[in-house]
Simulated assay, not measured.
Amino acid sequence: MNSSQDIVTHALPHAPSLIQRPARAIPAALSVSWARSEAEVREAQALRHQVFAVEMGARLTPPKGAPAGLDIDLFDAYCEHLLVRTPGEDGEPGPVVGTYRVLTPAAAKRAGGLYSDTEFDLTRLRALRPRVAEIGRSCVHADHRSGGAIIALWGALAEFMARNGLDTVIGCASVSMRDGGHFAASLWKQIAATHLAPIDCQVRPRLPLPIDHLRQNLNVEPPALIRGYLRCGAKLMGEPAWDPDFNTADLPLLLRTADLPARFRRIAG
């Protein structure tokens, strides 16, 4: 699930001390941990830049003076950052190949809201917000999108949610609009037919994707990350928003931890 930009110059200056122990390794070939230093956050931001700017063509607007080759925005300082790594040499940590960040309800208050508030009217979620964690900037390196990294991310998230008394996750899953948006419109139509959330959990985009002017009948395959979310029980909260800076259509997703497959609930327990 994705997001956008402004100021971050410190690692986690406002982050709450929620992380009591490292996330476990899932599966064995990958390791999962929460960033504990500015250097580790920078590794996540470098992977995000590679995926969003280089691969997807996003127009990032980092803060003045920010190092080149990083994706940085104002929400980073308030979030916990999860890292998936491949094995390194001589016992050293390997490179980061998957990441997302988590914004808790308390941190969202300090940040002035959720990132999703900038893209969607979340009025109908008001009653849920004290128990909602927002995940954003989700990405996996192109060489590791077969499923293992996504399983690792979601297993660690389930454990985090259980430990902190949270029961709902929301976020935006981004789809490239390099084809003008026809793929995104068709994907929305396809997923909405089977995974639309109940009306009391639906939201409205502030800048809607112009679905009615796009093809909606293409036979499309959801991107790996979105397939992973849906397999974990995620529901689509409404029509996609258009993010001109990232050149993406952003699909709003919601997942209740009670809907997670049994293997993730076992991890959380």
Score class of each variant (00 low, 15 high):
Arg215Cys: 01
Met177Glu: 14
Gln202Ser: 12
Ala127Ile: 00
His182Phe: 15
Gly136Ala: 03
Lys109Ile: 13
Pro67Asp: 10
Pro93Asn: 10
Leu128Phe: 00
Pro16Met: 00
Gly228Ala: 06
Asp117Phe: 05
Asp121Phe: 00
Met56Gln: 11
Gly147Tyr: 05
Leu122Pro: 02
Arg110Tyr: 08
Ala193Trp: 15
Arg266Leu: 14
His49Arg: 11
Leu254His: 02
Leu47Asn: 08
Phe75Thr: 01
Ile151Arg: 15
Asn217Met: 00
Leu214Met: 03
Met56Val: 06
Pro222Phe: 10
Ala133Gln: 02
Leu251Ile: 07
Val132Asn: 01
Asp73Ile: 09
Pro105Glu: 07
Asn247Cys: 12
Val51Gly: 08
Ser17Phe: 09
Gly181Trp: 14
Ala66Arg: 05
Gln50Leu: 12
Arg163Glu: 14
Val169Thr: 03
Pro198Ile: 08
Ala249Trp: 07
Asp243His: 11
Leu253Asn: 02
Asn2Leu: 14
Val102Pro: 02
Val220Phe: 03
Ala234Arg: 08
Pro252Tyr: 05
Leu196Met: 15
Pro210His: 08
Ala107Ser: 15
Ala15Val: 10
Pro205Lys: 06
Ser31Val: 07
Met56Gly: 05
Phe75Glu: 02
Glu92Trp: 09
Ile19Val: 14
Arg178Tyr: 13
Tyr115Leu: 06
Arg48Val: 04
Lys189Ser: 15
Ala173Trp: 06
Ala29Lys: 11
Ala142His: 07
Val203Glu: 10
Phe264Met: 09
Leu254Asp: 03
Pro93Ser: 12
Tyr100Ser: 02
Arg215Asn: 03
Val51Ala: 07
Arg131Ala: 04
Arg110Ser: 11
Ala241Gln: 10
Ala111Ile: 04
Ala127Cys: 00
Pro62Ala: 13
Glu40Gly: 05
Val96Thr: 04
His144Phe: 15
His141Tyr: 03
Arg85Gly: 03
Leu30Thr: 07
Val97Gly: 06
Leu196Cys: 13
Ser31Thr: 13
Leu251Asn: 00
Phe75Asn: 01
Leu166Thr: 02
Phe183Cys: 15
Lys235Asn: 12
Val96Trp: 01
Leu74Pro: 01
Ala173Glu: 07
Pro16Val: 01
Lys235His: 12
Tyr100Ile: 01
Pro93Arg: 06
Ser174Leu: 09
Ala53Ile: 14
Trp242Lys: 12
Ala268Lys: 04
Arg256Cys: 09
Gly98Ser: 08
Pro261Ile: 10
Arg110Ala: 14
Ala142Pro: 00
Leu225Val: 10
Leu251Thr: 02
Ile151Tyr: 14
Pro105Thr: 05
Pro22Asp: 10
Leu128Arg: 03
Arg265Cys: 03
Leu74Asn: 08
Leu60Pro: 07
Val140Asp: 04
Asn164Glu: 08
Leu214Gly: 05
Ala28Gly: 08
Thr123Gly: 00
Asp71Cys: 06
Pro130Asp: 01
His182Asn: 15
Val51Ile: 14
Gly98Asp: 04
His144Cys: 08
Ile7Asp: 13
Met237Gln: 09
Ala77Val: 06
Asp212Leu: 09
Asp117Glu: 07
Ala111Trp: 03
Ser174Glu: 09
Trp188Pro: 00
Ala162Cys: 05
Gly57Pro: 12
Glu221Ile: 12
Trp154Val: 06
Thr194His: 15
Ser4Lys: 15
Gly94Gln: 03
Thr248Gln: 08
Leu251Glu: 00
Ala66Met: 04
His49Cys: 08
Gly113Trp: 11
Gly165His: 02
Ala258Glu: 13
Leu122His: 01
Tyr229Phe: 13
Arg266Gln: 14
Ala29Phe: 10
Ile151Ser: 15
